[in-house]
């Protein structure tokens, strides 16, 4: 056993070495570090701040949903965020859904909780055509689909800079090429695809201080709104996270006791063999 620990102590630094060297890698195109932020859903015991996620949904519904779909979610899922059944029915009924009736005719009807979130565009081509050639990504999994996704979205929403107001010195700090030009319809964002010709995002700044008035009267400055949207999107990306962590705590506790028992049994069995 002592030997095993000693070997482990020797091996662990070996395994950790690549991680330690990684920051020393000289790669081009690293933009500024993401904004530091702590979220309620981080850590082994973290949960989704329900109030923040509900406010985040309000922002999604009023702002993001104009361009971004969330195809993996249904209105009924919102009940997991603490919304009442009546509230969810109301939210669903606010949208119009294409359907087919008993006679096989195309109809439009109010949405039901079992409907998926309404898509802003009928298809990807229409989405791209309406948005300067690039379809806005679906947001269902966006937090899981980007490295350090929560902090990335949080930073991106606050990362818009007016390009014309950047000094040459600041441009150099971003590592922009000499012939860098921001095309019409593109916006400069500190955290979007850094590179000599990078930082160009098609999305106009979606949020600004006071953009949405919260029903619950929470202060609606940009950082709060960004945090709320991120909380909602993190929940949308992994609605079963709280279940996972709760189960995990029980499993690990069980395994600890089980391991202790196994060790005691092993010691007892081996007592006469040494």
């Amino acid at each position: 056993m002592r030997k095993l620990i000693a070997t482990g102590a020797f091996l662990l630094p070996l395994l950790a070495a690549p991680a330690a060297i990684a920051p020393a890698l000289a790669e081009g195109g690293h933009g500024p570090a993401l904004l530091p932020a702590k979220f309620s859903f981080e850590g082994p015991f973290g949960t989704y701040d329900r109030a923040a996620a509900q406010r985040g949904f309000q922002i999604y519904k009023d702002v993001c949903a104009a361009c971004h779909s969330m195809s993996l979610l249904s209105y009924r899922n919102l009940m997991d965020l603490g919304l009442s059944e009546a509230a969810v029915k109301g939210i669903a009924a606010d949208v119009t859904v294409q359907d087919v009736n008993d006679k096989g005719e195309q109809i439009e009807r109010p949405g039901k909780p079992s409907d998926h979130f309404r898509k802003p565009f009928p298809n990807e081509a229409a989405a791209a055509a309406a948005n300067g050639g690039a379809a806005p990504p679906d947001l269902s999994l966006i937090v899981k689909a980007r490295p350090d996704g929560a902090r990335y979205v949080f930073s991106l929403l606050q990362g818009y800079v007016e390009f014309d107001k950047l000094s040459d010195q600041e441009k150099a700090a971003f590592g922009l090429a000499k012939d860098y030009k921001l095309e019409d319809g593109k916006h400069f964002n500190k955290y979007f695809h850094p590179g000599e010709q990078g930082y160009k995002i098609g999305m106009a700044p979606p949020l600004a201080d006071g953009a949405v008035t919260y029903i619950d009267g929470t202060k609606n400055d940009l950082p709060t709104m960004a945090r709320d949207v991120v909380t909602f999107l993190a929940w949308a990306a992994e609605p079963k996270m709280e279940d996972r962590k709760r189960t995990g705590v029980r499993v690990i506790l069980f395994m600890l006791i089980f391991a202790g028992l196994m060790y005691a049994v092993k010691r007892k069995v081996w007592a006469d063999a040494h």
């Binding site: 082994p44 962590k245 995990g248 690990i252 395994m255």
Partner: peptide, 14 residues
């Protein structure tokens, strides 16, 4: 096995 599964479980759940 139990020790190994415990490390595995730590990744699965956390």
């Amino acid at each position: 096995v139990v020790i190994f599964l415990m490390i595995y479980a730590a990744f699965v759940f956390f």
